[in-house]
């Protein structure tokens, strides 16, 4: 894994003004991945948009961690259904 693609969690605490516990809890809930290299913890920059989304939901809408987990699960289902819907619409085109 390229170190350039990783953002130290310490930087995230400062940049987003979040507590250590918040990032830790997201990791423990499986909502984000944390990589540890030589005692430093990092979040992959690919995951930052996901982290920001969770952060917005938590701080802007005051949704707690349990709520975030439930939302994540439901959003995954919504996206899956949207994809399925698109596929079915494309298939339907075969018979029109």
């Amino acid at each position: 894994m390229n170190l350039e693609d990783l953002i130290p969690t310490d930087e995230i605490y400062i940049r987003y003004k979040v507590e250590h516990n918040f990032v830790r809890s997201l990791y423990e809930s499986g909502l984000i991945e944390i990589v540890t290299i030589e005692k430093t913890q990092y979040v992959h920059n690919e995951e930052i948009s996901e982290f920001e989304r969770l952060w917005r939901l938590h701080y802007d809408l005051e949704i707690n961690l349990e709520g975030l987990e439930a939302i994540e699960h439901l959003l995954r289902q919504v996206k899956k259904l949207q994809k399925q819907n698109r596929r079915l619409k494309n298939r339907l085109g075969l018979y029109e």
């Binding site: 939901l57 802007d60 005051e62 959003l75 949207q82």
Partner: peptide
């Protein structure tokens, strides 16, 4: 605001 924002937040209403 909280009630309506939770209902309409773009993160909760993809696409």
């Amino acid at each position: 605001y909280r009630k309506l924002a939770r209902k309409n937040h773009p993160d909760l209403n993809p696409n």
